[in-house]
Nucleic acid binder design. Structure first.
Lengths: 223, 223, 223, 223
DNA sequence: GATGAATGAGATTTCATTCAT
DNA sequence: AATGAATGAAATCTCATTCAT
């Protein structure tokens, strides 16, 4: 176990470094050498822990889902004494904050969804598929990818039971709508760099507007 | 003019081919050779027409903006006898349809925005910047990139004047909200290929829901 | 003959252009396109007149030898009433002035000598050799390359007869010595660009020194 | 140090190979692949040690200056008990021998001078400039390029003090004159390969003549 | 004669991955 | 475990030359 722990420590240190440089330069523009030198080890060492660059990215993806799940659970915990509506609004706020803070995570999760969907269609080229398949993290991510969704759906359920959510749409549709909103917001935001406004709109105003709108949507029986 | 036309024809044929293979394989995974063989010419010929791969992508980006503008104008024309609200809803429908049909265009436009922002921040690496700067299409895109926005904003104005749009938010905020929605929707759909559902939700239902919601937002004086 | 003249005119215009751009950018850095656009014609047209880039350079080489020969004859003519020594010093001055004015010519003649010597050793790679061999100018240059030398040697002969040249070395040795001096002077000079001094030495002083020294060498029976 | 030495060994082995093939085929005609296969390694390995082809050439240039400096110091050492005149004649002999033996070195040094001059004029194209600038060898060469000159000038100084050198010209002028002589001699000999004569002149005779003449020049108070 | 679009071999360079130590 | 030298496939791009019009 000592060995295992040590190994984990190193593995995590590498993932930390990878997150940093991938965030700064993007996945495609980052060389394994960059990741290695960020943490002061050699390229070869990375390959001892990760079978490929893709696999390293998959490890980040796993972290992303884990972190989102943690964030969601914390949010649920924090609003458990409030209505389901507030729980869901809380999830939304957490989701936005999470994605803004971790753009890389946001992208990684999206890439994973794309990847899974594309491979199930047999569209993607085999090389990448193979690289992914041998990834020890691939299965792990598959196992947890749906947890955020189920948390979200559960809160909708709760809100419906306690009468705070009146929207009658399929819960999954509400989730998709919410996710798309967050995703679009974050994507467009990412292009604005350090700026606090885009198209003359304060980003804070925009963020608030999304929340307000979500609340409206959830409480509208005709929405 | 004959010469000019001929040149344009070829140029367009190359862009056609590039769109096809970029769409299928992605920009990074596509070699210039792939584009060339798609259309049955040699690599060198492409470089005769386009100074770099980036430039070729910029040509596609130009097309993307042009196509979106055309789509917007057509939509405006089609709804000119209806209220401003209907005009805006029409734009929204067009926007979604456009993005679903042309995922590559959607990505290209987003990349361009990112690019402009990052260069104005001096963040991007010089090599790409240079390649872009010499692009004859770069300036063209800069010139037209804001036209879709202004069309959108004009319809909001019209709707406010004729009383069909009651939402009091900044027009730019509405645009951003709408764009984010479309973007998120398209991104999540991107690789679904032939699939008609996601998370058990029919994509058609989702699409309709976005439209319905947009309408609600626009007619709500408190939204 | 009308045709022939017309052809010659065009040919010469192309060589003029080539001289200009080769001088400015160097042979290797110059594209056929550069030569063509310099004179406002198409690349294809150049190939109608010259079978290859090498051949075009060979045409310049031919001009170089012709020009040197002309320069030498003029010098000889100008000093025919003076001693052989003065004739030789005159040649030397002409040689230097010629080389300074026409660095490209100087290089071209040197390249030709190198080429001939290397091919007679079978050292040079075959591709270049073939390109050269089909050159219509190649033979022409071969025919006249030794004329400058023989002019030079004749003046030495004359100077010895009239007692103005006392140096007893082989005439060819004197020629080589003189040529090397001019060549080295011009080469080092070329690196100084527009500057009128190099290593704190005024180029004019250096030039004069070479002349003075040549005179000394020629009049010294022990040199 | 073991690592450093090992790296240096390989680096030098690559430079050795590059010298060989550049000498045989010329810089422009040589592919990195040629250099690699000469030493039985892969292209990539060369790029691991040298960032570009230019950089590799710059390494050779550095060697060239180093070798000339070594040669000069050895010559100075060997003649330190003799007069300054003999010291200078010794340098001259060494210079000639050095340049004959290392034509590539001779060219490299000349190219470097050209390069520095042209960049200080802002003439050279940017691509090469950049490639050169990142060269770790570039700075090294800049640091040592003037050492040969100063050694030469010092010997002139010494000869003047001990009365063996009577020539009153500027030392720099003498250096230029000498250098031009060597350069011209070497250039004209360059491709003669195994040949021992040119224009019916034994190269040995020519070489001796240059030396004799240098001596005459140095001892002539009116030269 | 002239054009310039088209070619395609080949050049430099990059970088994920391997492997001997 | 760790290293980092070595690999080599592949990518972008260049340009002398050809050839249909």
């Amino acid at each position: 176990m000592a060995t295992s722990t040590k190994r984990n420590l190193k593995e995590n240190a590498i993932i930390d470094a990878a997150e940093k440089v991938f965030s700064e330069q993007g996945f495609a523009n980052t060389k394994m050498e960059d990741v290695a030198s960020e943490i002061g080890i050699s390229k070869g060492t990375i390959y001892f822990y990760f079978s490929s660059k893709e696999n390293l990215y998959m490890a980040i993806t796993y972290r992303a889902f884990q972190a989102l799940i943690d964030t969601f659970y914390e949010s649920v915990e924090a609003t458990k004494d409030q209505s389901g509506l507030e729980g869901l609004v809380g999830l939304m706020k957490s989701f936005i904050a999470f994605s803004e803070k971790n753009f890389l995570y946001s992208e990684a999760m999206l890439d994973f969804i794309s990847f899974v969907r594309s491979t199930s269609n047999g569209v993607l080229d085999e090389k990448i598929t193979d690289a992914m398949k041998v990834s020890s993290y691939y299965e792990r991510v598959r196992d947890i990818q749906n947890i955020p969704i189920s948390i979200f759906l559960k809160e909708i359920e709760r809100g419906r039971k306690d009468g705070s959510i009146l929207n009658k749409q399929k819960p999954e549709l509400i989730y998709l709508y919410a996710w798309a909103n967050v995703l679009g917001f974050v994507k467009l935001n990412a292009t604005s760099g350090k700026k606090t406004s885009i198209l003359k709109v304060e980003i804070t105003d925009w963020r608030n507007y999304i929340i307000r709108h979500t609340r409206k949507m959830l409480t509208d029986p005709d929405a």
